[in-house]
Design a binder for these strands. Structure first.
Length: 312
DNA sequence: CGTGGCCCCTGTGGGC
DNA sequence: TGCCCACAGGGGCCAC
């Protein structure tokens, strides 16, 4: 479900309610959503001390000071620097709630907050398919270690237009350099390269198709076939489509909603995703579809020239 | 190194 | 109406 824009909207909707709050208690209904995918399979029933350690790792007793995001991952950080990363997978949600609100099916973890004058008393991690997970880290170095596995945040590709701190320009240059090097250094098609979180963090199946369309590049084009102009178009298009989607509150195809239950409207702007066989919004031609790297892919053969050669 | 296949899960929508 | 299959916004792992 969630790609970078949706995770960012979740972050923004959670932030004012979590920052400054103390976690009074953590209730874990399904402990196996905690830990990396590889690290949680062989788990036996935890002992009481282990369960307590897990609640502490999930910030029981701690005060939340900030919410950071990199790609599709959301980090909830306490004053000690400890915290946990939330990955929503395909169907995960973080929802704000009151104690009295019905606990829906597939609610795996519930944090109860205590803070003066709070509107919501709980945050809940709900994830029917359980492709999402929560991963604890002990301090800033621990978070850095987790995030070392993924590439630069896709929004860092944006130049001046984004929030302009003094450092944003050099950060943008570094990100663009790293991503263009990664893409140009491979024969794999640009779409699977964009989906590879180690190349750039935050792009999923919707926005990969949308970015390729916006850049007028066939998603099948080998990365090492892109010319400078084409690479520039791609690196511009990625943050552009993501920022546009954030402005719309994300894409709600089926059930995405932010922490307050607000749905997104970015799906109305999709030029190609989910529109196979329909008319290209630019040229009116029929949009083509196939599978690329096991993922449904839609593009306009006319606007996104199918030639493998770099045509300037 | 890159790709294709299969797996992890539940829910839903379409075709019959 | 009901059943079965395919598919879904995530990613990991394995054999080639």
């Amino acid at each position: 479900m969630p790609e970078l824009p949706e995770v960012e909207c979740v972050r923004r909707s959670l932030e004012p309610h979590l920052v400054g709050a103390t976690v009074a208690s953590v209730r874990i209904h399904r402990g196996d959503v905690i830990g990396s995918r590889s690290g949680r399979t062989s788990r036996k029933t935890p002992t009481a001390p282990q369960r307590e350690a897990t609640r502490v790792a999930m910030l029981e007793g701690a005060r939340i000071t900030r919410l950071n995001r990199r790609g599709k991952q959301l980090a909830i950080v306490a004053s000690s620097g400890a915290g946990f990363v939330v990955h929503l997978g395909m169907s995960g949600r973080m929802t704000l709630a009151r104690d009295s609100d019905e606990v829906v099916k597939h609610t795996h973890v519930v944090w109860t907050l205590s803070r003066p004058k709070q509107t919501y008393t709980q945050v809940r991690f709900v994830d029917p398919r359980r492709f999402g997970f929560l991963l604890a880290f002990a301090d800033a170095a621990g978070l850095a270690e987790v995030w070392r596995e993924i590439g630069p945040d896709a929004l860092a590709l944006a130049g001046e237009h984004a929030e302009s701190h003094a450092e944003s320009h050099s950060e943008s240059r570094a990100a663009r350099g790293a991503v263009s090097k990664a893409i140009r250094g491979t024969r794999r098609a640009i779409k699977p390269a964009l989906l590879d979180q180690a190349v750039v963090a935050g792009v999923g199946n919707i926005y990969a198709d949308e970015a390729c369309f916006a850049a007028r590049l066939d998603p099948h084009r080998p990365g090492n076939s892109l010319g400078d102009t084409e690479m520039g178009r791609l690196l511009d298009a990625v943050p552009r489509v993501l920022l546009s989607a954030i402005d719309c509150g994300g894409s709600t195809l089926r059930d995405y909603a932010d922490a307050l239950g607000s749905r997104g409207t970015a799906q109305a702007k999709h030029a190609v995703y989910g529109r196979a066989g329909k008319a290209c919004p630019v040229c009116g031609g029929v949009l083509a579809a196939d599978r690329l790297g096991q993922r449904a892919t839609v593009w306009c053969p006319r606007c996104q020239g199918s030639s493998g050669a770099s045509v300037k």
